Computed example of a mutant assay.
Amino acid sequence: MSTVERVPTQWEVLDERFRAVRGDHVVQRLFDGGRWLEGPAYSPAWRCLLFSDIPNDRVLRWDEVSGRCDVFQTPAGYANGRTLDRRGRVVTCEHGPRRVTRTEPDGSQTVVADRWRGKRFNSPNDVVETADGSLWFTDPSYGIDSDYEGHRAEPELDGCHVYRCSPDGRVDRVADDFQRPNGLAFSADERRLYIVDTQRRHLRHFDVGPDWALRDRGVLADCDAGSFDGIRLDSAGRLWVAAHDGVHCLDQDGTMLGKLRLPEICSNLTFGGRKRNVLFVTATTSVYSLALNVTGAGPTGG
């Protein structure tokens, strides 16, 4: 089905540098039948956007050519965040089975990680890949807190942490002082990692060492509208972050440049389109898109 419609575009310019970034383009609502939408990932090969409708336990597929939006998978393990790896395979965080999976070219699924030191994860939330093929993901407890986004259960781990799964399958805990780690993204050179802590309503940044060790640089930005959630970078290193009043655009030093205000709480975002200049945003019930004057960063940043 197709529900594409125009939405009034509301920009809030807080820094003059934002004017050249935002352009004067029209926001479109591509889909509006969800309950809590998440995990947008754009496939250049398929020219489509995959995204999750977590409480309805389904994955949807919006086709860029036809404009149709159809159910891609259901049940879907209460899927949340996802990314496409460098071979075009879909890597998905699943709340239900509490794991990270990879969909192979033949449609089969491979479990990438479901435990750390023998204990089940809480509910993997968002995931990115680095150039060496490692997968980094956050593990808050939203999928086991209730039956709304997964299955209520007692946690087996001692908190909500961030993990790295190397290409050989080894899982390491890389950060253990978050309350609810959520969206994450690397800079294009992979020397900086950004991670949202939704519970604390802020965004932190880390230096990444040659052995993938992280050095905490502290809080980069606090959210002034609810909480931050998903995050992506553009090709100039600016950060685009989902928040309760829309999408916030930050400079690399944390300066708020401006906002794209949307009528729903925003959960996540990604860059796509043939030129990687289309911003796709998942919100409470809807998916929005907007062509920008900038392009998304490489695979790990958007």
Score class of each variant (00 low, 15 high):
192 R>H: 05
84 L>Q: 06
180 R>L: 12
30 L>T: 02
45 A>Y: 01
163 Y>L: 04
277 N>S: 14
139 D>P: 10
173 R>A: 01
38 E>I: 04
8 P>N: 09
257 L>F: 01
191 R>E: 13
121 F>N: 06
287 V>A: 10
76 A>D: 13
168 D>Q: 14
269 L>I: 11
170 R>Q: 13
299 P>G: 13
170 R>D: 09
23 G>V: 03
30 L>S: 04
18 F>H: 01
39 G>Y: 04
64 E>H: 11
221 A>N: 08
28 Q>A: 07
34 G>F: 11
66 S>T: 14
268 N>Q: 11
285 T>V: 06
50 L>K: 01
297 A>S: 14
270 T>S: 13
174 V>R: 11
23 G>H: 04
189 D>Y: 05
191 R>W: 00
291 A>W: 00
83 T>R: 08
93 C>W: 05
163 Y>P: 09
221 A>L: 06
62 W>V: 02
172 D>A: 12
202 H>N: 15
68 R>N: 11
26 V>L: 13
219 V>K: 08
69 C>P: 01
217 R>D: 04
211 D>E: 15
148 Y>M: 12
172 D>L: 09
98 R>H: 09
276 R>M: 12
119 K>S: 13
193 L>H: 07
180 R>F: 12
63 D>H: 13
206 F>V: 06
217 R>H: 04
20 A>V: 01
164 R>S: 03
23 G>P: 06
122 N>H: 06
270 T>H: 08
182 N>V: 04
154 E>S: 12
9 T>F: 03
160 C>L: 00
177 D>M: 00
34 G>H: 11
